[in-house]
Design a protein around this nucleic acid. Structure first.
Lengths: 122, 122
DNA sequence: CTGTATCCGCTATGATACTG
DNA sequence: CAGTATCATAGCGGATACAG
């Protein structure tokens, strides 16, 4: 029997699980990766994170702001301008999420080959 | 204007996005972390990944197997025994996902404080 | 431009019962 | 034990319209 990892996130009732659920999410990952290059406007985020709707982007940013990962900067201009920026805490999350994005790109050939092989077998 | 990250996963139609979507997922993260300690039986995975249903665990393992991240070992015994193991490719995914789990645990205090502060403001 | 407000379908997930 | 099958439901997420 392999040694079990003593990982709190594995416990459904542990608070850290709620945090993992939020960060282990495609939209969160892409938004944080996008923001790693610096402060960005709402519309630029929407353009960068291809396919995200305004509603989902708004909700994702709100959740990130609530968790202390993102700061919201509003400008009283017309038309209005709002910029989002990673907090110090948010920047500590960049490396893990960026690693996930890099993994997806670095291994896509192997993954696609595996899928093809699997589907051919079934 | 900050420099935009030239990240394929940001493009909705890029194959690597489909891979990111799969790995940037709470269940995937927890199952891969659990399997990092070695080969495990279905029931032990269910017990380790607290709260996961048999159905979801089955589907998660199938998806991971299809992407070439997990190998399935069946034993013709009664009662049946099935073990799951990370492939070489799957093991390369452990570090990024483990980092995510560690992040959730290491920063849960800050996250909870941020949530409390945010909720109090609203 | 940056949202909010609906409406709503689809998918993810859970519960339960059943099979080999 | 390790699933599969079925059903029920919540919430994610898309489309659209509208507001400040």
């Amino acid at each position: 029997m392999p040694q079990l990892p003593a990982f709190d996130v594995m416990t459904a009732t542990c608070p850290s699980r709620t945090s993992l659920v939020r960060i282990a999410n495609k939209w969160t990952a892409m938004v944080v990766i996008a923001l790693s290059s610096g402060r960005m406007r709402f519309r630029d985020l929407r353009a960068t994170v291809d396919g995200i709707s305004a509603k989902v982007l708004t909700e994702t940013l709100r959740d990130l702001e609530r968790d202390g990962l993102v700061t919201r900067h509003m400008y009283a201009e017309v038309p209005p301008r709002v910029e989002y920026e990673l907090t110090a805490l948010g920047r500590t999350l960049h490396a893990p999420l960026h690693a996930l994005g890099s993994w997806a790109e670095d291994h896509i050939t192997e993954v696609l080959a595996a899928r093809e092989s699997y589907d051919a077998r079934q």
